[in-house]
Nucleic acid binder design. Sequence first.
RNA 1: CGGGGGGUAGCGUAGUCUGGUUUAACGCGUCUGCUUUGGGAGCAGAAGAUCGUGAGUUCAAAUCUCACCCUCCCGACCA
Length: 406
Amino acid sequence: MLFSESFIFTLRQDPKTAECRSHQLLLKAGFIHMVSSGIYSYLPLAWRVLSNVNNIIRKHMNSSGGQEILMSALQPLEMWQKTGRDKDLAEIMFTFKDRKQRQLCLGPTHEEAVTDIAKRFVSSYKQLPFILYQIQTKFRDEPRARFGLMRSCEFLMKDAYSFDIDQKGLDASYEKMFSAYKAIFKECGLDFVISEADPGAMGGTISHEFMVGADIGEDLLFCCQGCGKFFKDKGSCPDCGRLLEDKKMIEVGHIFKLGTKYSLVQEAYYLDNKGIRKPIVMGCYGIGISRVISAVAEVSSDEKGLIWPSSISPFDVSLIMLDESLRAGALDLKDKLECKGLSVLVDDRNESAGVKFKDAYLIGNPYIVIMGKKYISECTVDLENRKTGEKKSFQPEELLRFIPDK
RNA sequence: CGGGGGGUAGCGUAGUCUGGUUUAACGCGUCUGCUUUGGGAGCAGAAGAUCGUGAGUUCAAAUCUCACCCUCCCGACCA
């Protein structure tokens, strides 16, 4: 991608509509556009990050036996009245009527919808178990949207649902999802902790939250100052006895053993091998995708800008071309890097060197390659590691060997 | 929903207290031309503003009054 032809526009000043780090940087670096409070559009840079996160999620969901679907965002309120959650979630549901005066809502979550699907198609134990998941926009009329993508009224979520014949099956599905979640957050470059949590309005017996430490976090865990372990309740550390310290945490994922809460009420039954009618045993598993992005942005930056983990960065390489006469060389190097599976943003703009450096740091791709007068005199380019700041000179061919394939 | 900041050109601000040289200013960005090109370049010129909205007070309102809208932060809330 040529910067000169891209829809990437950075800001020089810090946007005043934002105070928290991730929100500021994502706006400043031209990743997102704020439409209104709690409502954002994703611009090309953010969309590339999102696609990377989505692909990581898909990879792990699929390899754990998940099948991707896409449910409707538009849902009849009647479906919610059946489980009574129209009242539980009344405060945050966007509801309205269609032309026939039918009451509708924009789905804040999809347990009812997916249970409805299971009810329609499942009749025998032979069809179980299965796991369905989707990546979709959720709508919640937040009492107070804040921190940019962290708590917004329209946001992307991956929600998965498991369907089993009994508790043992659920335990196995839950375990699969649990492992998948660990792999997903790890691959996204997040340093996370897992906490047993209160299922709350979701219902069910047990749930685990995947949390990332950050000052804008809205949940609280307690961290042992001695061994560094995290706990849900404040007491002294059960393991080493040291004092516990408050830590604000961002919840990026939450998994629940729902049991039969939804299947009983919505009559999602199957016949077992003795012909007995039983409710399907369910679990549900959510990842706040927009929130993963803001969590990464929140915890991974420096005074110059964002620092993306290579797994989800918008591009692998920012190639700074410092003079128009280097265009052919820059494009050639770009092609060769792309042959290695790397994505390259070539800054070929007619801008001063400083502007290009600042923007490369701000956008935060993991590798910055600088092609300037040293390329003319010695045929070398500089490679700078965005995270470590480490700089090295290479001949193009050496550079291609040095940067790992993707 | 309660409390507190804020809304002036695309972005960031000054001006508001104390109404009148304000024809609304400044920096950045944008456009044109020339120069420049390893760290947010220089010179010259240009475009760009219903001062959040509506009422009111006044000879006169960005400035005072009232109502509303938007936004940020704290709190309440948060599958």
